[in-house]
Every structure is written in structure tokens, then in C-alpha cells.
């Protein structure tokens, strides 16, 4: 909320403000929008929340491609609800970002100009309807792994948005897994389709957790600030351990010959992620990067007249409504 600053009085010094902030973080208290915060904390949050919001919005596209091709009315209704949720998640997150003093129209502009990124996973195409199931199971599964710890993020509005998002993601993952179970109980061609989708999405899903800890220079500071709660590698390991028994139950093979239980570590060992591919896709070289951004731009520009018409209507009826701030 934008408020007038309090009348000038005995202002605390920079040192006192920093000490106050550090003490609050150390006590695991939440930081709220109008609290003083270091500039680095604010800009890290803006970058992370905006990138997260953009991912939700762009994330509507790969699955949205199947809305008109869903094999049944039931699947279509489910998919519509899911894609609508992704839009909602994007809006919760833009609202959280705005509490930090940025403007959502500006964030959208930065996205369509390629100045801010979104998750690399959405630059892969959805080739068959099995992809819809695998996205629910693996991509949303990875997202849940990432997001559950963020419900305890030190920034209040972000943490609260994540609580809401996580509640809804659970539906996303379960509908995907159930869809796959049904396909695996179908024809040999359907089972092949599921395995093919798993083969294509497994490694990109592991990349969703970001670069390995050794190459993630911001992780340490983000964890010290309570913005992040676990490292990329910790979350990736957790996701692998969760997914293996789910793959067994489904009857699919995860495409990694090095994947094996390590009793000593109490975790699964797994093969090396192709980080060169990750860097290539993140920096625009994926199969669908150009398509995703141009479609987002088209939606934004083609919707401009609706936004203008609604604003004109509101201006015309000014004074007949309850409130007015112009």
C-alpha cells in the first residue's frame, strides 16, 4: 500500500535500521512491506518474485495448447481450471511484488522485452496429451518442492502468496498423475506416449531447481536473508527421491542409467544434468522461447483496448459509484 511517510521525527540511523532488520531475520520474524529493508534484499525479492510471476503466466501456454484438443469434457474442464489457476498464481505474485514498490505493468513490459526471465521449463513444447499429465506430475511436482519451503520465506507477502499457491498446486500434481495412471492402463500406444513424455520432461524438470550450488553465487545471501530456505541441490535431491517410487508405481522408467539408491547416503544417486543445455535454453536458445514471448506480447497488446475501454467506462461513471480517487 502506498502511504504518506510519517511526519519527520527522530529518524533512526542507518545502523539502527540495519540492526533492527538483522534482528528480525535472526528471530525468524517476517519482514512486511513498510519495514525498512536493505536495498539488496528488496531487489533480490523483486527479481525472484517477478521471475516467479512471469513463469506462472508463461506457464499457461504449454498446457493451454491442449485446451481445444483435450480428449474428453472432463479432461477439458480440469485443464481449464488448472490453466486458470496458473493465471491466478501469477496475479498473487505480481501483487506481492507490487508491495515492494514496483509496478505490475512495468514488470509485464520487462517480460515481453526479454529483460526479465521466466522458468526455462516452459520453453519446451507439449507434443502429446501425455505431456499434460507429465507436466502435472513432474513439473508441478518440482514446483511444489521449490515452493513449499517458500511458504516460510522471510518476506510476508511472498510467503502468504506461496501458501495460497501451494494449496492449489496439489490439485495440479494429482490431476496429472491420475491422467498418467489412466493412460498407463490403456493401450500399448498410450503407454509408449507416456514413456516418451517422461523421457523428454525428466531432465528439464531437474533443471527447474537452478544451477548447482557451486555455481549459484546468490544462494548464500538469499539463505542468510531467509528468502530461500534450501539450496538448489538439496531441493533437486529431494525431488529425485520423491519421484522414483512414483515412477515405479506408474510403471515408467526415468531416463537416467545412473539413477540408483545409495543406502549409505540414504538418497538416490543420479546422473549429471546437462547444464550447457540449461544455459542455452535460459538465454533464449530453447525450442519455444520466441513463441512464448511473442504470444505473451500479442495477448498484452491485443488486450489493450479492453483495459482502455474499462478505464473509460469507469471515468464516465465517476461519481455515480461509491468511491473515487481522481
Amino acid at each position: 500500500m502506498a502511504m504518506e511517510p510519517a511526519a519527520v521525527r527522530d529518524r533512526p540511523t542507518g545502523q539502527e535500521l540495519t540492526a533492527d532488520f538483522d534482528a528480525r531475520i535472526a528471530a525468524h520474524q517476517r519482514i512486511e512491506p513498510r519495514d525498512w529493508m536493505p536495498e539488496g534484499y528488496r531487489s533480490t525479492l523483486v527479481r525472484q518474485i517477478a521471475q516467479h510471476a512471469h513463469s506462472e503466466i508463461i506457464g499457461m501456454q504449454p498446457e493451454g495448447d491442449w485446451l481445444t484438443r483435450a480428449p474428453s469434457l472432463r479432461r477439458k474442464a480440469i485443464l481449464l481450471a488448472k490453466v486458470q489457476d496458473e493465471a491466478g498464481h501469477g496475479l498473487y505474485l505480481y501483487a506481492a511484488a507490487e508491495t515492494l514498490g514496483v509496478d505490475r505493468a512495468d514488470l509485464t513490459q520487462r517480460l515481453i522485452e526479454g529483460r526479465q526471465k521466466y522458468s526455462s521449463i516452459f520453453n519446451y513444447p507439449t507434443l502429446t496429451f501425455a505431456d499434460v499429465g507429465v507436466i502435472g506430475w513432474l513439473v508441478d511436482g518440482a514446483a511444489i518442492c521449490n515452493q513449499v519451503p517458500l511458504c516460510r520465506s522471510s518476506f510476508g507477502p511472498y510467503a502468504r502468496a506461496m501458501v495460497r499457491v501451494c494449496k492449489e498446486e496439489s490439485f495440479h500434481q494429482r490431476q496429472g498423475y491420475e491422467l498418467l495412471l489412466q493412460m498407463m492402463a490403456g493401450t500399448p500406444a498410450q503407454r509408449t506416449m507416456v514413456q516418451d513424455a517422461v523421457d523428454r520432461w525428466w531432465w528439464p524438470s531437474l533443471m527447474m531447481f537452478g544451477p548447482p550450488d557451486a555455481d549459484s553465487p546468490n544462494t548464500r545471501q538469499s539463505m542468510a536473508w531467509g528468502i530461500k530456505r534450501d539450496t538448489n541441490d538439496e531441493l533437486r535431491q529431494k525431488f529425485v527421491d520423491m519421484s522414483v517410487p512414483q515412477a515405479v508405481a506408474l510403471g515408467v522408467t526415468l531416463p537416467d542409467p545412473d539413477l540408483a539408491w545409495n543406502a549409505e547416503r540414504g538418497h538416490h544417486d543420479f546422473g549429471a544434468v546437462d547444464w550447457a543445455e540449461f544455459k542455452r535454453v535460459v538465454s533464449g536458445g530453447g525450442q519455444c522461447n520466441a513463441e512464448r514471448v511473442s504470444r505473451r506480447r500479442a495477448a498484452h497488446e491485443e488486450g489493450a483496448w479492453v483495459r482502455e475501454a474499462a478505464a473509460a467506462y469507469a471515468a464516465k461513471h465517476q461519481g455515480t459509484g461509491q468511491g473515487d480517487d481522481r
Binding site: 500500500m1 481450471a81 486458470q84 489457476d85 491466478g88 496475479l91 498473487y92 501483487a95 506481492a96 507490487e98 508491495t99 505490475r104 507477502p157 502468504r160 502468496a161 495460497r164 492449489e168 483495459r307 474499462a310 478505464a311 467506462y313 469507469a314 461513471h317 459509484g321 461509491q322 468511491g323
Partner: peptide, 24 residues
């Protein structure tokens, strides 16, 4: 308080709030 949204007027804000914050 559950969050915020942008809308041209009160009525649209109410509709958007229903769609955004009370889907379940």
C-alpha cells in the same frame, strides 16, 4: 486481508476478487 488487485472501478474489483481469491 488476502491480497490486492488492479481494477478500473469498485464493481470490477469485486468481480475480479471473486475470480482471483475465491475459486474454491
Amino acid at each position: 486481508h488476502v491480497g490486492s488487485l488492479h481494477a478500473p472501478d469498485e464493481e470490477m474489483a469485486l468481480h475480479s476478487a471473486r475470480n482471483l481469491y475465491t475459486r474454491r
